[in-house]
Design a protein around this nucleic acid. Structure first.
Length: 584
RNA sequence: GCGCCCGUAGCUCAGUGGAUAGAGCAUCCGCCUUCUAAGCGGAGGGUCGUUGGUUCGAAUCCAACCGGGCGUGCCA
């Protein structure tokens, strides 16, 4: 990567200059070198402001430091870039033309693997997300977690991590008992037996579809049971049905898990008790008022937390302790939990329990996803369970389609509340970025088809041979791989065209850097926005330069650029899980 | 009250302590005999919530305050 090469070269120059005493009072370089991309083209392709940072410590004018570094670095990078100094003390780097050819060659060579990185170092990561209670349908908030989690998993896999995805099913607590009670009531009612619906329960309308499914499957076979057994079997049976419908819905969104991890066995197999025993040995646990407490306050939480309630039942935290102990025992290097931001209060408690269990809480990263507000043509759609205006994920996918849902939920940073406009997400125009990126990809495909496939002449109704045969094309690609020189034919003398070409190629060349930065900052949304930039640069190039021309060699070179653009768009879209469509 | 997150163009959002704070939409003005105009170009639009501080330099770091969201159970 060019950026890395520049950075390393500068680091070398910096420590060399220090040793030679060229930097005044500065003896060792303790300032991190940041390479940035200047906004204005007159500042080159890359820039570094490290001389400005060093000026104070070195007690030297920044321009002089920049000059020293630039001179030292020049010969090192001479084969791909030039360095120049600009006031107040920047070092600007300008890439040579053949770097652009080299970038395209790399794209062609690596294809679907272009951009793949090894920053993850093969570390094993478990990403746990969605983990919705199996007591009802998924709504748009779950959708955001699902899309973000699945994008992060794709991204980290692409970035060299070994990733597993897991859905934790809270099927052990009171909510299952409550689900059972509600369903039991509806079940009995269906077979003509009067029954009071639990007052504290889930809304009957939301459960009715599942009970209907349950009845279709099991008929009246449970009617002989007494209430206690009935509630129990209803809880278990309804849970399976609901979990199944959640699974099918998530699959429609392109979200699938390596494992659906059930809480129930943790209790049944004594793993929760075991975790509590381990905690008790740590002397970070005490009994008070008939309950067992964790000294969470000593471990960074705002107060202590109950593990075992006065009635002997375990809290959510106790189950989580066992679950996370299990995760650690499975040998992951890193755990990532994606939670709705309404659970942020639980983070310190979980970190505390992990520390008390003798593990490093820093191995757990909790990423919180903020709310999704819906709007329609700019008008806010209020979401409320009580008013029945809650938007279910299924309805959303039905209305705007899987790709738009994924794009919009992936695009933004999870820490920001977002607003999802239903009408915008359906539009097939520039306004809708999800569409715009797909359109760009389809346009690349259309151009390639036009050149490489036989066409039907509209006037004569006769098939005309492809402008370039398949053989010619593979041969060109091969010669390009061996010597990027053949690509030089793409470059235009017309400065207006060249500017757009260079912009597009530079953008494509940045993809690996973009991937790494996204991986490190855990922000797959950056790649969604990056894809949009690529689409935009493609459109601008398309406007000023025809790909299909009479000069075959020029045409092939330009097709090479279109092919590379298509590849980069496809690779970025693959990470965010949006389909790269070939025709529109 | 306390804790966490967020305040950037009319709207939706970018913005890793650095050069003139950026996109898209919306508004106005241009551009179709040409590979998809489902598009492109141009213009206007900003006290980066406020006030202090650190720094050669702050939208970015720190503090206080003002707004909005969420949380603050022996609920999950």
């Amino acid at each position: 990567m060019i950026k890395v090469a520049i950075k390393e070269s500068l680091e070398k120059a910096l420590s060399g200059a220090c040793q030679q005493g060229l930097l005044g009072s500065l003896e060792c370089p303790d300032t991190a070198i940041v390479i940035e991309r200047p906004r204005s083209p007159e500042h080159g392709d890359y820039a570094c402001g490290v001389a400005l940072k060093l000026a104070g410590k070195a007690k030297m004018p920044p321009l002089k430091i920049a000059q020293t570094l630039a001179t030292a670095v020049e010969s090192d990078i001479a084969n791909f870039a030039s360095a120049e100094v600009a006031p107040p003390g920047y070092i600007n780097f300008r890439l040579q033309k053949d770097v652009l050819q080299e970038a395209l060659r790399t794209i062609h060579k690596n294809g679907p693997d272009y951009g793949r990185s090894s920053v993850g170092g093969g570390k094993k990561v478990l990403i746990e997300y969605v983990s919705a209670n199996p007591t009802g349908a998924l709504h748009i908030g779950h959708g955001r977690g699902a899309v973000f989690g699945s994008c992060l998993a794709n991204l980290m896999r692409f970035g060299g991590f070994k990733v597993e995805e897991e859905f934790y099913v809270n099927d052990a607590g009171v909510q299952i008992a409550q689900l059972g009670a509600c369903c039991w009531s509806l079940y009995k009612k269906h077979f003509g037996k009067d029954s009071e619906y639990p007052t504290e329960g889930y809304p009957a309308e939301s459960l009715q579809p599942y009970v209907d499914e349950l009845i279709a499957k099991h008929k009246d076979e449970f009617m002989a049971l007494d209430d206690e057994a009935g509630v129990k079997i209803m809880g278990l049976t309804a849970k399976v049905i609901i979990e199944d419908s959640q699974r099918r819905l998530l699959e429609r969104l392109g979200v699938s898990f390596d494992r659906w991890f059930s809480e129930l066995p943790l209790h049944a197999e004594g793993k929760v008790d075991n975790a509590i025993e381990v905690l008790k040995k740590s002397s970070l646990v005490y009994e008070s008022e008939g309950a067992v407490w964790l000294k969470a306050k000593d471990l960074g939480d705002e107060r202590d937390r109950v593990l075992v309630k006065g009635d002997g039942t375990k809290t959510y935290l106790a189950g989580d302790a066992a679950y996370h102990l299990d995760k650690f025992q499975r040998g992951y290097d890193l755990l990532i939990n994606i939670w709705g931001s309404d659970h942020h209060g639980q983070v310190p408690g979980l970190k505390a329990v992990i520390a008390a269990l003798g593990h490093n809480p820093e191995q757990l990263e909790v990423i919180l996803t903020q709310m999704v507000n819906l709007s329609r043509d700019g008008q806010v759609v209020r979401m409320s369970k009580r008013m029945g205006t809650i938007i279910y994920l299924e309805d959303l996918i039905d209305e705007v389609g899987r790709d738009s849902v994924r794009y919009y939920l992936a695009e933004s940073s999870p820490s920001n509340a977002i607003s999802f406009d239903l009408e915008l997400a359906k539009k097939t125009s520039r306004e809708n970025p999800a569409f715009y990126i797909q359109y760009a990809h389809a346009r690349c495909c259309a151009i390639l088809r036009r050149a490489l496939e036989p066409t039907l002449n509209q006037e004569t109704q006769k098939e005309e041979p492809a402008l370039i045969t398949a053989d010619e094309w593979t041969q060109w690609k091969r010669s390009f791989a061996e010597s990027p020189e053949v690509f030089a034919r793409v470059f235009e003398d017309d400065p207006e065209v060249f500017v757009q070409q260079k912009k597009l190629i530079m953008q494509l060349a940045l993809f690996p850097e973009e991937v790494e930065e996204s991986v490190i900052s855990r922000q797959p949304g950056r790649l969604a926005r990056y894809a949009y930039e690529v689409a935009n640069d493609l459109q601008k190039f398309y406007e000023v330069c025809r790909v299909i021309t009479d000069d075959k060699e020029v045409m092939k070179a330009r097709l090479g650029l279109i092919d590379a653009t298509k590849q980069v768009l496809a690779n970025a879209l693959a990470v965010i899980g949006v389909t790269a469509v070939e025709r529109m």
